[in-house]
Amino acid sequence: MKCEQYEELFAGWLNNELKPAEKEMLEQHLTGCPACRAELASMQQLWAMMDEVEVPEPSANMKTDFSAMLNDFKTAEANKKGTTTGIKEQLSWLWDWKQKWSLAFNLALIAISFGCGYLVFNLAGNSKQDQQMAALTSQVHELKQTMMLALLENPSASERMRGVSYTGEIKHADKEVIDALLSTLNNDPNVNVRLSTLEALTHLASHPEVRAGLVQSITLQDSPLMQSAIADVMLKLQERRSVKSFRELLKQKNLDHGVRDKIKETITQLI
């Protein structure tokens, strides 16, 4: 073993950390190696001298400085903790609340979802829906009107009557419908159709042209049933303009007696 290989043992020997076997090995080497013996001896001397090297005492400020630093640190930590625990507490409150009111919370969520959905669809689509609805209504309206007008041209009396009955479903009859009805009222060969038409027109009496048409129609009717029915309608509508037409009708020589009496009575009531 060369001298360098005892370095480890030198260090161990100085710090008194050698095991008995290592100590014996080193001592064996030292007896046969004067150089190593001298080196270790001088090292040992220095090593011992180092024990006497003193370190200056730290100043009394150190402790107060440490206390101040510790307090500052604690304050900083408390502030840091304060903000984070604050948030945590709020979150945990929400969590507790959610758990306690789990069902209510879920129901509320569902209600809110539906509400939002309703609002979104309605706000976005309300006017659009209304427009669509109006368009559809007017389409149906037009369809019914077209159908009614077509039906009034139908050769079958029952079909024409069906057409007339559709007018009850037409809320805002336009001029075309009124004209068609008045035309049917005056010209339809079937008395039942004309009676139905009269009834339909009575419902549309709020239109001035209907009233005017009905008054004009009085002299054009030759059927006692129609003449009697118109008299009833005029009395119902309290249409004074009809008196003139009725007096015209009274001039007709072939007028039914029963009708004649009824018209006279109607005129009396209207005047």
Binding site: E7, N15, E17, E39, S42, M43, L46
Partner: peptide
């Protein structure tokens, strides 16, 4: 030495060698 090895994060043998070299330098 074993404790110093932990602090310096080197092997105990390396600490001993370094200690010996340090003493050589000091001398």
């Amino acid at each position: 030495y074993q404790e110093i090895a932990q602090i310096l994060d080197i092997s105990e043998i390396a600490v001993k060698t370094r200690a010996h070299r340090a003493m050589q330098e000091l001398k």
